[in-house]
């Protein structure tokens, strides 16, 4: 592990989560989420065995992939004490652009990946520059670019929607790694993304800089961290992950419309999931494993509501309650650990 050369004066008021003392607490959050998810699966599974079937488990996992990817980026942004509302239109724009090109002119998958990367980095970097260079508060920056980027979806597509994607795309979204290994490729994509982001946040200089900036950016600056650069890169990464999520969305569902992303309020969902996972909105703490577990837990809860025959109008209330309970309980946990 690289250590950050922090002069004594620059030590942030709050300790950094990636440092050893926090580790146990973070693991508590992860274990809690795993136990809660497992308990839900077993309890509902006792009433309806279909809930525990391999197939259902696989789809609950698959259904969480897109949101997990977006939320990974959101976690990084929140860890710098920022927020990124524009992930929804970035995801939608990528889904529509790559999907339409694939549908109409047979864009090869490699090309789509390239477009996603470029689009995501570009739009994300713009956010980062506005936040870091012009010092526009993140929520305002990304609220503004939310409008701009959603407009771009209309400008590009003129309302044409994606109805089907070529086979290679569908395989990326739905296929197994190999016929004899029943692991969906999409899950592998998420796992790789998670591993990379986790490593970056916890075991690199850049990751420690992210947390330092989130803790106290003035102190981080005094400690010799290039605050501006860190922020720009974090928003760029958030854009990138949202764009990859958009590509995975169009591959998984085979469809995309002008309201993809924004219509499902992916921006709010991703914030919720990051906070469920134990990332602090006040910055300085980012738990990417928790984020993915949180997204999975949400998917399991929403599916469970169907299995236990809760009327559909209450699904949204169920989601709200779950966010409230997990986040509040999590904060109790954190405070308990601190005392």
């Amino acid at each position: 592990m690289t250590t950050l050369p922090l002069p004594a004066a620059g030590v942030p008021e709050r300790e950094m989560s990636a440092a050893a003392p926090r580790r146990s607490r973070r693991e508590v959050r992860e274990i809690t989420l795993i136990v809660a998810t497992a308990l839900t699966i077993v309890t509902v599974g006792l009433f309806n065995h279909g809930f525990m079937s391999t197939q259902n488990l696989r789809f609950m996992l698959l259904n969480s992939v897109v949101l997990s990817l977006v939320a990974l980026g959101q976690t990084l942004v929140i860890a710098t004490r920022g927020i990124d509302l524009s992930v929804a239109p970035v995801m939608g724009l990528t889904a529509v652009v790559t999907g339409l090109l694939a549908q109409s002119s047979g864009l090869p998958l490699v090309g789509a990946v390239g477009i996603a990367i470029v689009l995501g980095l570009l739009l994300g970097t713009l956010n980062g520059l506005l936040v870091a260079r012009l010092a526009i508060p993140p929520i305002i920056t990304t609220l503004g670019t939310y409008s701009l980027y959603s407009g771009l979806v209309f400008v590009y597509s003129n309302g044409t929607q994606v109805d089907s994607v070529p086979r290679a795309y569908a395989t990326l979204g739905n296929g197994f790694v190999a016929p004899f290994i029943p692991v969906p490729i999409a899950v592998v994509v998420l796992a790789v993304a998670l591993l990379l982001v986790w490593f970056m946040l916890n075991h690199t200089r850049f990751g420690r800089a992210i947390l330092a900036v989130g803790n106290n950016d003035a102190a981080a600056y005094n400690a010799g961290i290039g605050v501006t650069g860190v922020k720009v890169r974090v928003y760029a990464l958030s854009g990138l992950l949202a764009a990859i999520a958009g590509l995975m969305f169009v591959c998984y569902t085979g469809s995309a419309t002008v309201t993809t992303g924004t219509g499902d309020h992916v921006e709010l969902q991703s914030i919720a999931v990051a906070l469920i996972g134990g990332t602090a909105i006040a910055g300085g703490r980012g738990n990417v494993v928790g984020t993915v577990l949180g997204s999975l837990f949400l998917s399991v809860i929403l599916t469970a509501l169907v299995f236990i025959h809760v009327p559909p109008i209450w699904y949204s209330a169920g989601e709200g309650l779950m966010i409230l309970v997990t986040v509040t309980a999590g904060m109790r946990q954190n405070r308990g650990g601190a005392n």
Partner: peptide, 23 residues
């Protein structure tokens, strides 16, 4: 009372209020 961040508290209640309204 619960010391929940305003952003997350009101996000959660907005989901709950919307459900109640629909019902």
């Amino acid at each position: 009372r619960l010391r929940t961040e305003p952003l997350i508290a009101t996000l959660a209640t907005s989901f709950i209020y919307a459900s109640i309204a629909t019902a």
